[in-house]
């Protein structure tokens, strides 16, 4: 008799926290919130409901495709294209010594730059807040935005810095030992979010 280890792990693995459909719904909701906030915070007489003022800047790896998805949904809802960029934060991290060197990813800003505009940083998971701090440091070297906001797919708590998200797809209470594993089709071939206990792969 053979025991299927695949079957066995399927039985024990918890269901995903967010399925592909859930991720799509969350992205749509945040896109709507971004449209509303851009309009409300836009200077008087701003064109396109303040959307021309908006720049979505993804933090690689998974923040970058999230930013592109949000821009696509905003355009679908409003008919207005929104500027998108990415900022690699590796060279700004304060934990290189312990986490080690990794390959750099792309840094690309829209041609109009970020000076005087509303920059919304996009990331997949908000945890300690250190990635966001590094991204803020990077932005400071790249220009002077009018304001910077933060949108994340998942906020799992355990902040180590005074940082909070302006837009949250889903708040997920976790223990420190757990891992939040976000998969996106552009990077991983599938959309889903799982909470893994220590030792799970």
């Amino acid at each position: 008799m053979t025991m299927s280890s695949e079957l066995f792990s399927d039985l024990s693995a918890p269901p995903p926290l967010l399925t592909g459909d859930d991720v799509a719904r969350v992205v749509d909701r945040v896109a709507h919130q971004l449209i509303e906030r851009a309009a409300s915070s836009a200077p008087d007489g701003a064109a396109d409901g303040g959307l021309a003022d908006l720049v979505l800047v993804g933090i690689p790896t998974r923040g970058a495709p999230l930013a592109r998805r949000l821009a696509a949904r905003i355009e679908a809802f409003t008919g207005t294209a929104v500027d998108v960029g990415t900022v690699d934060i590796t060279l700004y991290r304060d934990d290189l010594r312990t986490r080690g060197v990794r390959a750099l990813e792309e840094t690309r800003l829209p041609a109009a730059g970020i000076d005087g505009r509303l920059v919304v940083l996009i990331d997949d998971v908000l945890f300690s807040g250190r990635s966001v701090r590094a991204a803020l440091d990077a932005l400071r070297d790249l220009g002077r935005p009018r304001a910077v906001q933060l949108a994340v797919l998942v906020d799992r708590g355990h902040r180590e810095l005074p940082i909070r998200a302006d837009y949250v797809g889903k708040n997920v209470p976790t223990s420190r030992a757990q891992q939040v594993r976000v998969k996106l089709a552009e990077v991983d071939g599938v959309d889903e979010v799982r909470v893994l206990n220590g030792g799970d792969r």
């Binding site: 690699d88 060279l91 700004y92 750099l104 792309e106 840094t107 070297d141």
Partner: peptide, 17 residues
């Protein structure tokens, strides 16, 4: 190449790495 791209056109040519 990534470093060159990250620094392209910047006034602040310095990274805190």
């Amino acid at each position: 190449a990534q470093i060159e791209a990250a620094l392209a056109g910047r006034e602040v040519k310095k990274l805190p790495t």
